[in-house]
């Protein structure tokens, strides 16, 4: 069953651009990325789009569909009516390179700023066996495909370009939480999270969780627990007192 869909796709680069109108065939079972590929093949050979696996696992085809941050390959055309005009734009939190392709190097820079796993210095490879209950919290965070939709939708940087230096975004605060919850990690992640990665700027409005294609509970399981751990270290006098008299770690 084929129908002619109305699409508006943002075309342009960092100097300017606009939404361009297209009419394009849609077949049963297709996703938005299929339609973008058909546009490339039939009407607009120079349309730039970043994609790779087409299976929701590489995190390449992040964009905004009708204003909502989504993966192009995981958005079924059957979720729209045939009369609807579907608008596709690049992610609006990052500088655009061309058409639907953005420069996400902000995220790679923030990733490098997170110190890696720091086990005790005297621990030899193979000396430690982890139990399932100790790894399952961080296993959830390891599902991240780094599509950066959470970074894109987070209003702290999306709506405030000037915050990009001070705030690492939900994806990398989740990475810090993952490391902090690791039984063997010895680094001071709490102070890092608050002082160097801007955890205090997060006001837990949960948009990162809403857009995550892997359904990771970023806010409830990473950001809020990390905020509570920061409170332990920085704002809770009872925990501070407990640590001084040797009753709390």
């Amino acid at each position: 069953m084929t129908y002619l869909a109305k699409f508006r796709v943002w075309r342009g680069d960092d100097k300017g651009g606009d939404l361009a109108d297209y009419k394009v065939d849609v077949n049963e079972g297709e996703v938005v990325l299929d339609i973008i590929h058909r546009l490339q093949a039939t009407q607009s050979g120079d349309l730039a789009v970043r994609w790779n696996c087409k299976a929701g696992k590489c995190g390449s085809c992040s964009a905004e569909i009708n204003g909502r941050p989504r993966l192009l390959c995981m958005t079924r055309m059957s979720t729209f009516t045939e009369e609807e005009t579907i608008t596709v734009t690049p992610m609006r939190a990052f500088p655009v390179i061309r058409d639907l392709v953005t420069d996400v190097s902000f995220n790679y820079r923030k990733a490098r700023e997170v110190p890696s796993f720091a086990p005790p210095a005297n621990l030899k490879p193979g000396e430690y066996r982890m139990q399932q209950v100790d790894v399952e919290r961080s296993q959830e965070f390891r599902k991240c495909i780094e599509c950066f939709l959470c970074q894109n939708t987070c209003h702290v940087v999306r709506d405030h370009e000037e915050n990009k230096q001070a705030f690492s975004g939900p994806r990398f605060l989740m990475r810090i939480a993952e490391l902090d919850m690791h039984p063997l990690d010895t680094a001071d992640r709490q102070h890092q999270a608050q002082d160097e990665h801007g955890l205090g700027m997060c006001n837990i409005t949960k948009c990162c969780t809403e857009v995550c294609p892997e359904h990771i509970k970023i806010t409830d399981n990473a950001l809020i627990p990390m905020k509570e751990r920061v409170v332990d270290r920085k704002y809770d006098p009872l925990v501070w007192l407990g640590s001084k008299i040797g009753r709390r770690s």
């Binding site: 500088p95 902000f106 405030h160």
Partner: peptide, 24 residues
């Protein structure tokens, strides 16, 4: 693109999704 996330003084109407460098 490289300059895009340097700290800049926000100007009403030219920050956030309307920041220079982002999709217009």
């Amino acid at each position: 693109r490289i300059e895009a996330d340097r700290p800049v003084k926000p100007v009403k109407g030219q920050t956030g999704v309307r920041s220079p460098g982002r999709a217009n």
